[in-house]
Design a protein around this nucleic acid. Structure first.
Length: 261
DNA sequence: ATGCCTGTCCGTGACAGA
């Protein structure tokens, strides 16, 4: 089973790229972030025409996440538990029943948190604590589970081309990195790091100042695997080539392959 | 030190309907 996470930076602006990607990568499941539209405005018909089921948790203008799957999406849940007052659409999960067993997949759009020392950073840390609590509860269910998305966290120095440039940024704050480690320490596996220790592996390059051309990148899109999912991990690929397409998203897709189904 | 780039919404103007 090939599972992809991709922050598309507007589903409507990126529909042609998404269609091309679905045709040539042929993933089984896709976790989208920053669809930037309501459920009604999401281009579901075009995606369904390519053989995918669609579940959307959208929002006007900002945020918004979705799941696409060749097999049916069951037990769809929208929103991260722990704060009924949180109106930002940043979390959706569902179960896909494959031949080899059921897989729970979540699409996550973690808050950016900038600027630090504002309410936005406090919201990020509170959101990460809610995510940790939810992932702890899910872990107890011993499922094959994949929590994939834009975590907006640079885990380690090797995950940035110029770590010093991110010193004051919410993506690289000690608190942000500690919260990410706390999730891993529950017993989750960073899929990419299970496959390689190499540096220079990035998933985001800013649109500005020729960041992609200079390879001024960071690794902030991650797939975290439950123990049973990690046992089935076959490989990971960052689709850097997609970031070079015309009028791209500023994020590259991350592909994870599991021996399931 | 700041902007760099991109996307959405709003406002505007054009137009349809009452």
């Amino acid at each position: 089973m090939k599972i992809v996470t991709w922050n598309v930076n507007s589903a409507r602006q990126r529909l042609a790229h998404l269609e091309t990607f679905l045709r040539e990568s042929a993933p089984d499941v896709v976790c989208l972030q920053e669809i930037k539209c309501t459920d009604e405005a999401f281009p579901a018909a075009a995606i369904e025409a390519l053989g995918y089921n669609v579940a959307v948790h959208g929002q006007k203008t900002f945020n918004g996440v979705a799941l696409l799957s060749r097999l049916p999406l069951e037990d769809v849940r929208r929103g991260l538990p722990g704060d009924d007052g949180d109106l930002q659409a940043r979390y959706i999960e569902a179960v896909i029943s494959a031949g080899g067993g059921a897989v729970r997949v979540a699409s996550i759009y973690l808050p950016n948190g900038n600027p630090v020392a504002t309410e936005k950073f406090a919201y990020k840390l509170a959101w990460m604590e809610r995510l940790r609590a939810h992932m702890a509860a899910r872990l107890a269910e011993e499922e094959i589970a994949v929590f994939a998305g834009d975590y907006n966290v640079i885990p380690e120095p090797r995950d940035a081309s110029d770590p010093a440039a991110w010193t004051g940024d919410a993506l690289y704050q000690p608190e942000s990195r500690a919260a990410f480690r706390a999730i891993l320490n529950l017993g989750y596996t960073d899929a990419l790091r299970a496959c390689t220790d190499a540096g220079g592996l990035y998933t985001f390059w800013d649109y500005q100042a020729g960041a992609f051309q200079r390879d001024f990148g960071i690794r902030i899109d991650h797939a975290l695997l439950s123990p049973r999912a990690a046992d089935r991990l076959r490989g990971v690929a960052i689709r850097r080539d997609v970031r070079a397409w015309e009028k791209p998203s500023d994020h590259a897709p991350l592909e994870v392959t599991l021996d399931v189904g």
